[in-house]
């Protein structure tokens, strides 16, 4: 049974008389609990596709079905971790998470339960120690953790990650990737993640969706990553399946879809 279905989605941006077709006939189905990565060159329309699933942008043609129901407006069932953390700077770490929790569980949880739930989620990403700090007082990696906690705390059906580790240094990134893998293992979320890091895609995903270059980007290829979980970054470095998958994605990106400069 399909959980999330992206059905014949086209997206055309129109400004005045000029219009550009960014996405063309995107079809994808995602199973419950699956970890999907979308990879493609910069500007091909990855964020646009994620925003369509999130309901922040409307598809020009086609639509998105979640548990067989069409979704075309944003909601906490498709929580997003944004490319640049997007924490509200005037709220503390705790209050940033609490904002979503108060809305989503307004009727189903008491005040005390909501407080506990916020702390539980901050603990999942190891950020309880900084709960009373403002976003400007914590590091980039910590901000991204809070962004993940905020999204997780809404108990989304699908967790959408837009290059969640893009702005981080390599060490922090590896650390956070491990955290997200552990969380996925523990909570079994359905996750759709955008990335342009090949290793990240292979390490984390069950399937990798490779997009062709824009304009009119399509899904070029979908690759299964049949690696057992839990996965260990160090052991995989010499794993033949891992290397084969990695090779496959690299070939797609750098031979078949070479980045066209200043298109």
């Amino acid at each position: 049974m399909t959980y999330l279905k992206i059905d014949h989605v086209d997206k055309v941006f129109t400004r005045g008389s000029a219009s550009t077709e960014v996405l063309k006939d995107i079809n994808l189905t995602v199973e419950k609990g699956e970890y999907i990565s979308i990879i493609g060159h910069s500007g091909c329309g990855k964020s646009t596709l994620l925003n369509i699933v999130a309901g922040l942008t409307n598809a020009t043609q086609g639509g998105v079905l979640l548990e067989d129901r069409e979704v075309n407006s944003p909601g906490p069932d498709r929580a997003v971790v944004f490319q640049n953390h997007s924490l509200l700077p005037w709220l503390t770490v705790y209050d940033n998470v609490r904002l979503g929790v108060d809305k989503v569980f307004a009727k189903t949880k008491t005040r005390a339960e909501r407080d506990e739930w916020v702390l539980y989620n901050l603990n999942l990403v190891q950020m309880t120690h900084a709960k009373d700090k403002r976003p400007s007082e914590v590091s980039g990696g910590m901000k991204q953790r809070v962004g993940i906690a905020r999204a997780l705390a809404m108990e989304p059906k699908v967790l959408l990650l837009d290059e969640p580790f893009g702005a981080l240094d390599a060490l922090t990134r590896a650390h956070l990737q491990d955290s997200v893998m552990a969380l996925h293992q523990k909570l079994g979320n359905t996750i759709m993640m955008i990335t342009h890091d090949v290793d990240e895609a292979v390490l984390l995903s069950d399937r990798i969706v490779m997009m062709t270059n824009g304009p009119s980007a399509k899904i070029g290829e979908v690759l299964d990553v049949p690696l057992p979980r839990p996965r260990k970054r160090l052991e995989l470095a010499s794993n033949t399946t891992y290397l084969k998958c990695r090779q496959r994605v690299l070939e797609f990106l750098y031979e078949r879809q070479r980045f066209v400069e200043a298109a």
Binding site: A54, G55, L56, G75, R78, V80, S86, L88, G100, M154
Partner: peptide, 24 residues
């Protein structure tokens, strides 16, 4: 970004006014 956050959390008009607009 802030508008997107508000949209995902589904703040209503009044909440959006107090929690996003005024502080921002």
């Amino acid at each position: 970004d802030y508008r997107n956050v508000a949209a995902v959390v589904q703040l209503n008009q009044v909440e959006f006014f107090w929690k996003i607009m005024i502080p921002s």
